[in-house]
């Protein structure tokens, strides 16, 4: 009974992770500009691969493996926003425009000053 429960949790994690990865990929294609695409990639994408890693930890069922998987999960979750932030900053400084639907850009005055 216990192993079926564990298998169900693992399966749920696997399917959830794959689903989030798919959603991120769809978002990458559907969203209109670079900055909104970054939302999809940095949130849904990270959660997707993080959940899959957690699934490995749960499936293995021993503590060292789980701890390693957890460490990997936190590593991804902490690095994804940093890379997204760096990329958005670089793109905006260099002048890649926001999409036409954008309603405001309070950063443009700041960029012009430097």
């Amino acid at each position: 009974m216990m192993d079926i429960l564990l298998a169900a949790i693992t399966a749920l994690l696997i399917l959830g992770g794959a689903g989030f990865a798919l959603v991120a990929a769809i978002g990458l294609n559907r969203l209109p500009d670079l900055y909104t695409r970054m939302h999809a990639a940095s949130k849904a994408g990270t959660v997707g691969s993080g959940l899959l890693l957690l699934a490995v930890g749960v499936h293995a069922g021993d503590l060292p493996t789980f701890a390693r998987a957890l460490a990997g999960f936190f590593f991804f979750v902490l690095t994804a926003p940093i890379s997204a932030h760096l990329l958005a900053m670089a793109a905006h400084k260099v002048g890649y425009p926001l999409c036409a639907e954008s309603v405001r850009d309070e950063m443009k005055d700041y960029d012009k000053r430097i």
Partner: peptide, 21 residues
């Protein structure tokens, strides 16, 4: 644009990590 491609490549790494898992 180039940043678009970089975002997509970053995402590719995430997907490959999923494959490895």
């Amino acid at each position: 644009t180039l940043p678009d491609r970089v975002v997509a490549l970053d995402m590719l790494t995430g997907i490959v990590i999923g494959f490895i898992a």
